[in-house]
Nucleic acid binder design. Structure first.
Length: 494
RNA sequence: GGGGGCGUAGCUCAGCUGGUUAGAGCGCUGCCCUGUCACGGCAGAGGUCGCGGGUUCGAGUCCCGUCGCUCCCGCCA
């Protein structure tokens, strides 16, 4: 930190200390803390004046109940002001909750009364006061009798958004939108999700990797890559860490994961796509088939959901009206062909050749399949496996006895595709042949093919959409709601 | 990229078959109200009806173009 800034901070700290000392309620307490109180040695006035006060720690709203009859400092935002003839109420919101502040008003309003009358919602304030219990107060049966209030940063009157503003407008003013507790909860859950994922990986001996997002050539198709000026040539933003996590297999890492950004240049206008999103990637060596990958993924997800349910289940239920719980294992598995038979038998009609053997399921079919599986097995999750080579990349391993089918899978949750995974082809000659059969420009991916020339373990893995998981988990209808800052074809700001 | 929908006050919306000064709720401003808690009461300010062109005596309303947003499909995580 620059010395200049340090100086400013120190000065601000002294100002704050003086302000607090000047309050009749706080002054005594601060003096006690400084050593002059009943528990400390008696000190003369001069020494007490020189001694720096021990600052009153900021108390979180959620902890107020353990500070009854104490004077505390609170810092947060003005949630509401109810300015009456004889009584003023301010509802203060901080990261942990809402609290009522109260101040009486005499015939001649005090300076503090005037300050409160002029408060605008969402102003950032620091207040001090005595915490008292009062059963009249609906907010937790307690309130803070105001001794002081200072505005750290006023909010202009008339906020540009309200909680029910259109999502696009809320994203324009995302920092205001994020102040709302229900939106904050989304990101608290996201933190828990990522932590639980890492917990499980670390228990299982995985290594976390960070792969480059700047690449010299396409990693897969090339059609959906963003180009970037890179000195005298063109670079591409990684649309997947796919090749690099496989490189970690060739590098002997055994089991790896990465949580990181990926970039897709598709002009996709749906509720579940963005041009930059957080991908969760896993790759595991020494597997026998894609079944091993699925077996890992379902246990890993069950752990995540269990932890989220324990920690946030009640709040998610009361805030979003959805239940999160540990899923039953194993998840049902169904081949793509059998899934189509099931849909056909159920009378489902897909558009765009959705039920043709060579096509993937279209979104309505995925939703219908999830509904049928849920009804028949009680599982909200379903692995769809054995996709035809026509809809899978060249590096997916084929079934030895059915060369038109791959050892691959998708994971659907409540009708949305969360994951694509597969066993990878690790035999160089076979991989080369499959690349040529798919018309891949071999010289562009030669560096990747080389991974398999000097002894590569059989391996497989999956890619997983973090925001799609959150969207389904929290009953949100778009990934934009659960993305800190959404990026789409028409959205580069804020 | 293909198809549908929307764009009216700071916010959310209403404005029927084209017809005088374009409305509501919330918010905002002022006044009133001894404990509010979605506080309440009274008054007020606030709108080039996304933009451009056209049809018409007359356009928020109809037509064309354009921009923005949105949903579905394609693509995928």
């Amino acid at each position: 930190m620059a010395p200049r800034r340090m100086g400013r901070l120190r000065r601000a700290g002294r100002r704050r200390a003086r302000r607090l000392l000047s309050h009749p309620l706080l002054g005594a307490r601060l003096a006690r803390r400084a050593g002059g109180g009943p528990a400390g040695r008696p000190v003369d006035g001069d020494r007490a004046a020189i001694a720096l006060p021990v600052p009153v720690a900021r108390v979180a709203v959620a902890d107020l109940k353990s500070h009854l009859e104490e004077t505390v400092e609170l810092r947060g935002w003005v949630h509401a002001v109810r300015d009456q003839k004889r009584m003023q109420f301010v509802v203060l919101r901080d990261e942990t909750g809402l609290a009522q502040l109260i101040l009486g008003k005499q015939e001649q309003p005090s300076e503090l009364n005037e300050t409160i009358s002029a408060l605008t919602p969402e102003s950032a304030v620091t207040v001090a006061g005595l915490v008292v219990a009062d059963e009249r107060v609906k907010l937790g049966g307690l309130e803070v009798q105001l001794a002081s209030l200072s505005v750290d940063s006023p909010a202009e009157p008339e906020l540009p958004i309200t909680p029910d503003s259109a999502l696009d407008k809320r994203i324009d003013w995302r920092y205001l939108d994020l102040r709302r507790p229900d939106r904050r909860l989304i990101f608290e859950v996201q933190s828990t999700v990522e932590h639980a994922m890492r917990e499980h990986w670390r228990e299982q001996g995985f290594i976390e990797i960070h792969t480059p997002k700047l690449m010299g050539s396409a990693s897969e198709s090339g059609a959906e890559l963003f180009k970037v000026d890179y000195f005298e040539r063109t670079a591409y933003l990684a649309q997947s860490p796919q090749f690099y996590k496989q490189m970690a297999m060739a590098g002997g890492f055994g089991k790896v994961f990465e949580i990181g950004p990926v970039f897709r240049a598709n002009p996709s206008f749906t509720s579940r796509h963005d041009t930059e999103f957080t991908s969760v990637d896993v790759e595991i060596s020494w597997i026998d088939s894609h079944e091993d990958v699925m077996a890992f993924e379902e246990r890993w997800l069950a752990h995540v959901l269990t932890v989220v349910a324990e920690r946030h289940g009640e709040q998610i239920s009361s805030t979003f009206g959805v239940e999160v719980g540990a899923p039953k294992l194993p998840f049902p598995r169904i081949t793509l062909a059998a899934a189509k038979d099931l849909l056909e038998a159920g009378g489902h009609e897909a558009g765009g050749g959705g039920l043709d053997p060579d096509h993937d399921l279209d979104p309505p079919s995925e939703r219908a399949l999830s509904a049928i599986v849920a009804e028949q097995t009680g599982s909200e999750f379903v692995f769809v496996c054995d996709y035809p080579t026509s809809v899978r990349p060249f590096y997916h391993m084929r079934h030895p006895d059915q060369p038109t089918l791959t050892r691959s899978f998708d994971l659907l949750w409540r009708g949305i595709e969360l994951t694509t995974g597969a066993q990878r082809e690790h035999r160089y000659e076979q991989l080369l042949a499959q690349a040529r059969a798919k018309n891949v420009e071999v010289d562009q991916v030669q560096y990747y093919l080389d991974f398999f020339r000097y002894g590569a373990p059989p391996h497989g893995g999956f890619g997983f959409g973090l925001t799609r998981l959150l969207m389904q988990m929290l009953g949100q209808d778009t990934v934009r709601e659960v993305t800190f800052l959404y990026r789409g074809p028409n959205r580069l700001e804020p």
